[in-house]
Every structure is written in C-alpha cells, then in structure tokens.
Design a protein around this nucleic acid. Structure first.
Lengths: 276, 276
DNA sequence: CGTTGACTTGACGGAAGTCAAAAGGTGTGG
DNA sequence: CCACACCTTTTGACTTCCGTCAAGTCAACG
C-alpha cells in the first residue's frame, strides 16, 4: 500500500527522495486496529503517540450531555489524528472509528525528530493543520448557510477530492463506510431527512451510495449542486482539474508500491483485510 | 495599554520577563486602523505582515456566490489574524472589521525571529492556533446540534470568557459591536429570528445587549442555557467560574523538546524566507 | 427635518424535526 | 438452510422551528 501521508503532503510540496524515505519509515512503527464504533482517542486523554490513520475511516466527534452527537471532521487515510498533543494538555474531543481502521502509532519524539531534520516536512505538516482548519471553516458554512441537499453534496464532493488525493478512488468511486445516522450527526440533520435528501441526490443521477461505497456519477454536477468553491483545501499542485488529481495520485501509488516499505505495509494491511 | 496578546498567551504558560519584553516589542510596530465594514485581509491575498488585533472586533467571513455570508470566527484583541501566511500561499477567507479596529502590522520575519528566540513563545503561539481550531469545532456543534437560543447563548458565553481573558470586561460587561445582521451571519440564522431569540434571552434575565455593549447578567444561567462545556478553550491556568486546572504547562514539553521545537521552527521559517 | 441604518413586528410558508412503524439486509445459531 | 435477531434504511403523518417578506419603528446624524 502506498504511503498516503506522503501522497497527501505532496499536494503541497514535492519531496526529495530522502524526505520520502523519512516519511516511509513512519509506517514501520507498530500499528493498532480498531473496530467500528471504537474510540480511537478519548476526550480528555493525554496522548503520547501520534496516530496516523492508514486504512478505514474515522471522525472527530463530541457527544453532549443529553446525548446529541456532532461529527466535526472525517479522517481519511493519510490524516494525522492528534497533532495537538505537542502543545495541549488533553484532547477536547473524541476520535472514533467509523469502520474497522488501522493506525500507526508514532512516538511523539519521532515526529519531533522529523521536524528538526527536514524543514520541508515541517512545512508540509504545518500545511496539513492549516488545511484542517480550512475544512472546519468550510463545514461551518455548510451548517450555517447551505441547505440539506447542498450540504450533503458538498460533503460528498469534498470526500471525493480527499480520497482522490490519497489514491483511494477508482472512477470516482470510493469506500465511505458510514451509516445514514452518522451522516446525520455530521451534517446536523436527522436520519429521516438525510434519507430523503440522499434519495433526491440519487434520483438526480449525481451519486450512488450503497454497500458503504459512494460513487460519484457526475462530479461536475455534484460540484455545482454543492456550490463548491475550491481553494480551501489548498491543493497547490492541482485541484480544479479533478482529473489531474486522480492522474497524479495514480502515479504516486505506483511509485510508492515500488519501495520496499510500501510493500511491507501492503502486506500488513492486506493481512488485516483478509482476517475479517 | 496592556498587551492583550501576552495576556491571552499567559492563559497557557507563564512567561519570563524576557519573553514578555519580546512580546511587548511587537506593539511598537506600525499600526493600521480600519473602519467598520473594511476588509482587513482579503481572500486570495498574499500577506507579508502578520496582523495582530489590538482594539475593536473583527471576523473571519466568507461570501458565497449568491450573496449568502457566513462568519466563521470572531477575532478579539490579542488575536492574530493570519498565521497561515507562513505556509499557505493565500488566505482562503476574508478578515473584516466589525467595528473600527486597530491592528499592529508585524513583519513576518519578526515573528519568525521570535519563534527561534523563544521556545515558550513558540509553544504559546502554537497553542493559540490549536485553540482556534477548538473554537471552530465548537461552532460546528453550535450550528449542527444546538437550537437558536442555545447557540446564541453559547456564543455570548464564549465571547464573555474570551474578553475576560484579555481584560476587556468590567462586571461581565463588554463591548460587542455587532449588529443583529452580523449575529445572524455568525449563527446561520436570519435577522428576524435572531431578534426574537435575543428578546427571549433578555426576557429570561440572562443578558442585556444595547448600544453595542453586551452585559451578562447571570453568567451561570447563561452558561446553562448554552449547555456550555468548558475545555475547548484550553485555559490551563483558569477559566474563572470553571473548575480550575492544575498549572503545569511547563511540564507538558520537556526542556529537550523545547529546543527541538525551536530548531524545527527555525528550519521552517528560514526555508520559507529563502523560498520567497 | 429627512435620511439612513438598525431594530422590531407579524403573517405566512417551508424546510427540517419527531415519532413511530415497517421493510430490507446480514450474520449467526440452531 | 432456515430462522431469528439485529442493524440499517425507508416511509409517512404530524409538528415545530426557523425562513421569507414585508411593513413599520426608532435613534442618530447630516
């Protein structure tokens, strides 16, 4: 399996071979698997290892005293779960597994070492957190000023792009293992209304969503339905041409597969897959 | 005038005299004033100076193609407007003045110098951006899972705390110079509904809000009405009225870590310098 | 004054919530 | 291989919160 962290960061800056090796080395740290519903990192917990999501889907979520739940972000392969650890005393929200997931647990010192060794990696990681903030702001717009259809379309389109970046799509189709209840918690809507809205999107021929697989049938029209405005993801290298993203992503996949570490990780993850 | 940046950051860590002087020196850079409605920093613009808000109130906002506007954050004295400049090519949103404001324009190199000189300041600034993310996430909860009254109460309570931190309150009363239209754009509601909700809050004896001054009459009950859960502001030292948190910011990161971080930031910032 | 910007009010409509209950899937055990 | 349990999805009737679109008030100000 490719190093999706590298693929993601290379949307910002093209690494030299040495930096790429440094990033590959991260994947050799012990992994931990979680089942759907597991809390990967708990609110209030003090974390020592940085969690890098390798496979699956996770979410940042918070549950209010009366049981209402809000998902505030999705984490896809290549995303770091808890960079705040360097500075903050504790997590202010939970990271939960939306499906079976795998994380690499990287000791904080190792990341710190990276930061001192490579200014490009430092900048790239910093870029990652800035992009995360941009996504949070965009979600606020979603919740505040977009209707249900627009909002769900926007979320789907964003997930499409983010999955493309890390090479997790085939023909605008990707694994998106969430229930409609989860989607309701992410959008701030209710499950029945999510259901109706999904049916509208399906009827409009924009998407297909079954068996936990989301297929975007017409990316351009989905983008329009979402009133999507690119820019907040700060994909320096490309974005507008959605196709460009996927092409490049494909290159990176094959490149990464050639590295020994890449293949080692591939072994691990496929073993996990088969053990289900 | 007090240095509100210092006051804010000291919620995280207690500075030595030298660091405090370093921060004070920032205030001697040229200031710029803006009138209500002015765009302080424009979306897409490449910024060279870091804007530190000294007086007034500003907001992060985005306007959609059809005119809908969403405010995604408020900036109070002591807040930095554009730390993303170090990494990102351009702003992905506007900073607008909600009232007459004053900013100090600090050359990016000066901030970079600070980062290399003082690891405590580095950590504190980093903390600031992490807190900003926490606030964004909390706003998503506001929009997604809180009703109008709850949401406005929450926003008011948060603003109360943030103004207290920088010494901008007297008896839970502070200047909050926004119109109900602005409030609507921040909450995702409509002006008439904001109006009705405000009247409810007033009738309940929770607040007073006139002449651009917000007075919290009963902080505890406002807090309850908001279903406020502390923690996301990460006020290590105190959150008056909240449960005290042990003061141990210094323990968070070891001395070794500090120098590592310092060097890391030095790397990245000098790299940025040269890439310009 | 008259104009402007902000706040207030009300009638009406519509998008989304609530609360069931039924209908599909899927996996497990008998 | 069926049967049952369990989870998800779907459906529908009914409610409510909030939006829409005015019109109207008020205070500040030129």
């Amino acid at each position: 399996m490719a190093n999706s962290l590298t693929m993601k960061l290379e949307q910002f800056i093209r690494f030299e071979q040495l930096d790429r090796q440094r990033l590959d080395r991260l994947l050799s740290f012990p992994t931990k698997t979680f089942a759907r519903g597991d809390v990967i990192i708990e609110e209030g917990k003090e974390v020592r290892n940085i969690h890098l999501l390798l496979t699956g889907l996770a979410a940042r979520a918070k549950v209010l005293a009366d049981g209402r739940r809000q998902i505030m972000a999705f984490l896809v392969p290549g995303d770091l779960c808890d960079v705040e650890v360097f500075v903050l005393r504790a997590m202010d929200h939970n990271i939960v597994a939306m499906t079976d997931t795998t994380c690499v647990l990287i000791p904080a010192e190792v990341i710190e070492g990276l930061l001192t060794e490579s200014s490009n990696i430092t900048k790239a990681l910093w870029w990652g957190t800035m992009v995360d903030s941009g996504i949070l702001r965009e979600w606020i717009i979603d919740h505040g000023r977009r209707g249900a259809r627009e909002q769900i379309a926007h979320m789907f389109y964003e997930m499409l792009i983010r999955h493309r970046i890390v090479g997790e799509t085939t023909d605008d189709s990707f694994s998106f293992p969430i229930t409609q209840d989860d989607l309701a918690d992410a959008t701030g809507l209710t499950p029945p209304h999510v259901n109706k809205t999904l049916q509208e999107l399906r009827a409009a021929g924009l998407i297909e969503f079954k068996n936990k697989v989301l297929t975007v049938l017409d990316a351009q029209r989905l983008r329009n339905a979402a009133n999507y405005e690119s820019g907040y993801l700060h994909l320096n290298r490309t974005e507008k041409g959605d196709h460009e993203v996927s092409e490049r992503a494909g290159d990176l996949v094959s490149a990464a597969k050639q590295s020994m570490l890449g293949r080692a990780v591939h072994n691990v993850t496929s073993a996990i897959k088969h053990s289900r």
